[in-house]
Amino acid sequence: MKNKICWALLGVVVTFMAHAGSRQLGTGAVMQVEGSSGSGIVTWATIAGYGEDDETDVTAAYTYLDTDDYRFNMVGAAIGWHNRVEVSFAKQELDLVTLGPALGLPGASLKQDIIGAKVRLAGNLVYSKMPQISFGIQHKKNQSFLIPSVAGATDDSSVDYYLSATKLFLGKPWGYNGFATVTLRSTEANELGLLGFGGDVGDRHLTAEASFGLFLNKSWAVGFDFRQKRSNLSFASEDHWRDLFVAWVPNRHVSVVAAYADLGTIATLPDQKGLYLSINGSF
């Protein structure tokens, strides 16, 4: 009996907490690999969660990617304030499954913490003719700088700046709801910053990202991500990243993304491909 009351109380608390904002399903996008609202590897102009201009939402996510030679995971949280400002926190870890033992460092991993901030400058994802346009920063701090410094990275922290445009197209194409994002980023990061910042062959670069897809129905979306990469380290030249994703958004509290990612060569190891999984919760 006591147990039942406990569960009932918990249910009430969870229901009370679970007051997500009122924007339509899917418009909060998902947390991308650096903790910002977006898709798998691309940052979008969306503000995390479902809040309108009188609502604030909190989103949390766990992401996992396995390419055999590497295992990546991210835990992150974001606050979307009034569909205007997003503040995000992410902890990334890349297990050097193959490189670690080869370097005589079994169990070695690269770690990074990211604090992000994004502001919606203009437009509305769904309702305006123009796309939603946002400006954001991601302050990145590498927490395992020994290996990157040996590899030639010059800094253990840096800031990415990006300008992003995202639009949802109601009923287009073919009656489905299409979506598209183009993002320009200024970055010094080597492999997102997991290999530090700057290096012997470069420093700050302008890179492009894009994401396209379709909602097949209210809860299922499919899409494609592309992220241009530039190289700062002669020892670890980078390849562009791409992925194909499927997202399931059963309600405003949960979303799940599965993707097949092709990350090319990472730190000398070629053909890094694998399954990407991400689980998001919103309140």
Binding site: Y127, L170, G171, G175, Y176, K218
Partner: peptide, 16 residues
């Protein structure tokens, strides 16, 4: 059907 719903929404969305 979903695809017709979206076409209807596209007509009324600009009224926000």
């Amino acid at each position: 059907p979903f695809r017709l719903q979206n076409k209807v929404l596209a007509i009324f969305a600009p009224m926000r």
